[in-house]
Amino acid sequence: MNPYYFASIALILIGLYAILAKRNVLKMLVGLSIMETGVNLLLISVGYVSGRSAPILSEGITPDRAVDPIPQALVLTAIVIGVATTAMALSVVINLYEKYKTLNVEEIRRLRG
């Protein structure tokens, strides 16, 4: 059980725990952001090949000495998507706070049934 795998799964689950247990909306968004970081870490650690170096093919590094570049390309996109989602979520929360004057999830329940 590799430490990075363990860390990524732990981060994902702590993020999920925050969303499930915490009542403050901003805390939930912190949990969401942590979950996304955990997923990125998982993606990278899946693409890592032990004993190889970064995929910059400068003079010293030959193709069979480099790590898998694809997960790194994917994570580049995933991180920025994570930030975009967080920025959007926060602006929604700002609007929400302006109208509802509360951040407690139990009170944000006007739309139900």
Partner: peptide, 21 residues
């Protein structure tokens, strides 16, 4: 930008976020 619209969007963001992760 009404209160209810933000609430609906918030719900979708949290659930959509978990789903896409």
């Amino acid at each position: 930008k009404t209160g209810e619209a933000s609430e609906a969007a918030l719900k979708y963001i949290v659930l959509g976020g978990i789903g896409s992760s």
